[in-house]
Simulated assay, not measured.
Amino acid sequence: MAKVILTVNGRTMSGECEERTLLVHFIRENLGLTGTHVGCDTSQCGTCVVHMDGKSVKSCSILAVQASGSSITTIEGISANGELHPVQAAFKENHGLQCGFCTPGMVMTAVDMISRHGANLDEKTVRAELEGNICRCTGYHNIVKAILAASAEMSAARQAAE
């Protein structure tokens, strides 16, 4: 057994697991944060996306022991004060979710995408960067629309704050 210590959603958390335990399983089973979904365990579907040290990663492709010492943000940690994150709100307003299974990974990918591209985000870039996230309900049109809406709103809010 290996000890894993992480900062998850701003809190230091730890646990023990087998050395072969994937980060996604550690997050769900050891830490009880089930918003991060397990889809394929092969890095193909994107349902397990979390932010590790500020960047999107597929948590099924990283061992928990490899992530030890890192800062992890899960879908549970992106909103503040009980309010939806602007990306979550945009998904709701633009019907960017159907069954909801892929939604946590899509949202986490979108938050990272918007933080990297800001106001320069366009449909072509969104579609290209979503290639690693699969929506089995084929809701891509509204997902792209939601990400672009969130990007515009967040950029406008940043400009107003400056």
Rank of each mutant, 00 (worst) to 15 (best):
M1N: 10
V87K: 03
N81R: 12
E16R: 15
A128L: 15
A161N: 09
R20A: 12
M108A: 08
E131A: 15
D53V: 10
N30Y: 02
G46Y: 03
S71R: 11
E18I: 04
V49N: 09
N30W: 01
F91Y: 02
C48Y: 03
C48F: 02
L121Q: 10
R11F: 11
K145S: 13
A80Q: 11
G77P: 08
T73M: 02
A64R: 08
S71P: 04
V24R: 03
L63M: 12
F91L: 07
A128M: 15
I134C: 02
Q159V: 12
A110T: 06
R116Q: 15
M13F: 03
M13W: 01
C40P: 06
S43D: 04
N133T: 10
V107W: 01
E93T: 10
P104T: 11
H25W: 12
T36D: 05
A89Q: 14
S70N: 08
V24E: 06
K92E: 05
A119H: 14
R116D: 10
A2Q: 14
A156V: 00
L121D: 07
A156T: 02
K92W: 05
L23N: 01
S79P: 05
G15R: 13
A64N: 01
G54M: 06
N81V: 05
D41H: 06
L23C: 01
A110N: 10
G105H: 15
M154V: 10
I75L: 01
I134D: 00
V126K: 10
V107K: 08
L121C: 10
M1E: 11
M1W: 03
V57Y: 07
S70Q: 05
L23Y: 02
G15I: 06
G10E: 04
T42E: 06
C48M: 00
N133S: 01
Q98E: 09
A156Q: 09
V8P: 05
P104C: 14
R158E: 13
G32N: 12
I134P: 03
G82K: 05
C40I: 00
H141M: 15
L22W: 02
V24L: 04
A152W: 09
T109Q: 11
I143A: 07
N142E: 14
F26Q: 03
